[in-house]
Computed example of a mutant assay.
Amino acid sequence: MTTYIPGMLPDGLLVDLPEVDAQHEEIFNFIDFLKTICFEHSHMPVNEFGKLLDYFAIHFATEERIAEEVGLDFTDHAKIHTDTLRLLHKALGEVINGGQDAHSFLRFCEYWFERHIREDDKLFVSALQGGDYDRSVGYRHAASPCFSAQA
């Protein structure tokens, strides 16, 4: 992505894992880029919206790789990722078919992602950095009740 602006992620959304923080920041910057295109040009670049979902998938895979490398049980968190990608693909389909507004879709992506970082990723990184897991049992991530069922 060419829209990456380092240092724009608020401190409250930093998880203190550089690779993950950089990806979080890039995703938010890309959402802002898409908002700008939609507002300034009244145009929805479908291929760019698809890239956003691809980048979510890449980011989720990064977190899953990190958990696997240290032996954390990431099952619940990974399910949130899978469910969210399914939901976002469905919602994007509705935008493309005219059943949903592009701006609403982007606002939802931004809100969901911010909440996910605050409630899910911070818990994951805290356990990762603090060793708050039994390597023989693994880390059981408590799924957030807010979106885990819908995502």
Rank of each mutant, 00 (worst) to 15 (best):
Met1Phe: 05
Thr2Arg: 12
Thr3Pro: 04
Ile5Glu: 08
Ile5Met: 05
Gly7Val: 09
Met8Ala: 14
Met8Ser: 15
Leu9Asp: 08
Pro10Arg: 09
Asp11Trp: 03
Asp11Leu: 08
Leu14Gln: 06
Leu17Ser: 10
Pro18Gly: 00
Pro18Trp: 02
Glu19Ala: 15
Glu19Lys: 05
Val20Trp: 01
Asp21Gln: 03
Ala22Cys: 11
Gln23Asn: 10
Phe28Pro: 03
Asn29His: 04
Asn29Val: 04
Asn29Asp: 05
Phe30Ala: 09
Ile31Ala: 03
Ile31Phe: 04
Ile31His: 00
Asp32Glu: 13
Phe33Asp: 01
Lys35Trp: 09
Thr36Ile: 01
Thr36Asp: 15
Thr36Asn: 12
Ile37Trp: 01
Ile37Leu: 07
Ile37Thr: 06
Phe39Met: 12
Phe39Ser: 13
Glu40Gly: 04
His41Ala: 14
Ser42Tyr: 12
Ser42Gly: 07
Val46Ser: 07
Asn47Gly: 12
Phe49Asp: 03
Leu52Glu: 06
Leu53Met: 11
Tyr55Phe: 10
Phe56Leu: 14
Phe56Asp: 13
Ala57Val: 13
Phe60Cys: 15
Ala61Lys: 15
Thr62Glu: 01
Ile66Gly: 03
Val70Ala: 02
Gly71Val: 02
Asp73Trp: 01
Phe74Glu: 06
Phe74Ala: 06
Asp76Gln: 07
Ala78Glu: 14
Lys79Cys: 08
Lys79Met: 13
Ile80Thr: 08
Ile80Met: 12
His81Tyr: 08
His81Asn: 08
Thr84Asn: 11
Thr84Val: 10
Thr84Met: 15
Leu85Tyr: 14
Leu85Arg: 15
Leu85Pro: 02
Arg86Lys: 12
Arg86Asn: 13
Arg86Gly: 13
Arg86Glu: 14
Leu87Asn: 15
Leu88Tyr: 01
Leu88Pro: 02
Leu88Asn: 05
Leu88Met: 14
Leu88Lys: 04
Lys90Trp: 03
Leu92Gln: 12
Gly93Trp: 10
Gly99Arg: 13
Gly99Ile: 10
Gly99Gln: 14
Gln100Arg: 15
His103Tyr: 12
Ser104Ala: 12
Ser104Lys: 09
Ser104Pro: 05
Ser104Asp: 13
Phe105Ile: 11
Phe105Glu: 11
Phe105Asp: 11
Arg107Gly: 10
Arg107Tyr: 04
Phe108Lys: 11
Phe108Gln: 12
Cys109His: 00
Cys109Asp: 01
Cys109Pro: 00
Glu110Asn: 10
His116Glu: 06
His116Val: 07
Arg118Phe: 00
Glu119Leu: 08
Asp120Trp: 00
Lys122Gln: 05
Leu123Gln: 09
Leu123Cys: 04
Val125His: 03
Val125Lys: 00
Ala127Ser: 11
Ala127Tyr: 00
Ala127Gln: 02
Leu128His: 06
Gln129Tyr: 04
Gln129Pro: 03
Gln129Ala: 13
Gln129Thr: 12
Asp132Arg: 05
Tyr133Asp: 06
Tyr133Ser: 07
Tyr133Ile: 11
Asp134Ile: 09
Val137Ala: 08
Tyr139Val: 09
Tyr139Trp: 13
Tyr139Pro: 09
Arg140Met: 10
Ala142Lys: 13
Ala143Gln: 08
Cys146Leu: 05
Phe147Met: 09
Phe147Thr: 04
Ser148Thr: 09
Ser148Val: 03
Ala151Cys: 05
